[in-house]
Amino acid sequence: MTPTAIRGALAVLAFGVGPAVMAQGTFQTLDPSYGGETARRGFYGGFAVSGEAAYRDADLLDRVEPGAPAPSDLSLAARLDYALLPQVDLALVAELTGAAQNGRMGLSWVVVKPYWHNEGTDYAIRVAVDPVSEGGLGFRQTDVAFLSTTALSPTVTSDLSIGLRRLRTGYSDPAPGEIDLDPDAEPVFADDRLNGSTTGLVRTRAVGQSVRGAWGYNVLFDPAGSRFAFGLVAEAADYTILRADGGLAEGDVGAEPEEGASDRVRSAVGWARVGVEFSRPYYQLAPFVSVPMFTLADVQGEPVRHGPRLEKLRVGLRLTLR
């Protein structure tokens, strides 16, 4: 693969398929799930609105090459939760970083979450999909997780979540010698047709899956349910990067691109997360800090190994109105 294609492959994993829908993968730590998530409903009325702002070094692998645009270190997200049924919630998650940078905003996830309670433990199944369809391949991202919250004592609870995420997405990348890679460009999927303006582009597809999990404890410190939270979040991912050269002359829009190189990206990352959640009847305020404890990756046979790195910590704040 060419250096431009390598940057493009990493950009797929770091930024998903463009600024409107940022993938939540190893290389991009913003995620609406697994970080501070519980199996209990966090609002009392019919709906809740929350916003999250975080600052972190988005280039977790330190692989941005000379001339490539650096990923944004500031992330902004908004979420709307709605009580669809007495024990089923519907949530819409929007990534706002693109809107802050270029005025474009897109819906990142649609989440359905049924709950139930049994013998002192709360359970939930969360199904989240990227709402953009990729033709006959279905949704670009699908995440299914099992969650539980157990009361260990009147002031201590334990949270556990484990899930599987599937990614099938693609976008266009300039061929070698063409224009520079533009991370703000709209994605071009494998079933799109090239026209005269996209001649010379390389179409890249990322296909793979990741296993994710989180485990933590909460210490309640007031009657309203405010808590200190301590947890570990881990992910193991395996992606295949497929590249097809466009190489079509203007007017050959019906032709199929030639098959190009493929690459495999395998990675694992673990985070330690500490936070405080101040709860009141009408709002929640939750600052948090996450530190990468280990980072392991294999990209084109090139290993990446890191232990704890305080310089890569993520600091954020979530505000929920309920």
Rank of each mutant, 00 (worst) to 15 (best):
I6A: 13
R7E: 10
A9E: 00
A20M: 05
F27I: 03
Q28I: 00
T29N: 09
S33T: 12
Y34M: 11
G36W: 03
E37W: 11
F43C: 00
V49H: 01
G51C: 05
A53W: 12
Y55C: 04
R56H: 15
D57F: 03
A58V: 10
L61W: 14
P71W: 14
P71D: 10
S72C: 00
D73A: 13
L74P: 03
L85Q: 09
E95L: 02
W109P: 02
W109Y: 15
Y115L: 10
N118I: 07
N118Y: 05
V129H: 01
P131M: 06
E134V: 09
F139H: 10
Q141G: 10
T142G: 07
T142A: 08
D143W: 06
V144I: 13
S148C: 08
T149I: 04
S153T: 15
T155D: 11
S158F: 14
D159H: 14
D159Q: 12
S161M: 14
G163P: 08
G163H: 09
R166Y: 10
A175G: 13
A175K: 06
I179V: 12
L181K: 06
V188C: 07
A190Q: 13
D192G: 14
D192M: 13
G196Q: 12
S197E: 14
T198E: 10
T198P: 13
T199L: 15
G200P: 11
V202W: 05
G208C: 10
S210G: 15
V211S: 12
V211G: 14
R212P: 02
G216M: 08
L220W: 13
P223H: 12
R227M: 11
A237E: 11
Y239A: 06
L242F: 05
G246F: 00
G246Y: 00
G247D: 06
L248G: 00
A249D: 11
A249H: 08
E250W: 09
A255R: 13
A261C: 04
S262F: 03
R273V: 14
G275D: 09
E277Q: 14
E277N: 06
R280A: 14
P281R: 12
Q284C: 00
L285F: 12
L285Y: 07
A286N: 07
L296V: 02
Q300V: 02
E302I: 08
H306W: 02
R314P: 04
L317S: 06
L319D: 07
L319P: 01
L321D: 04
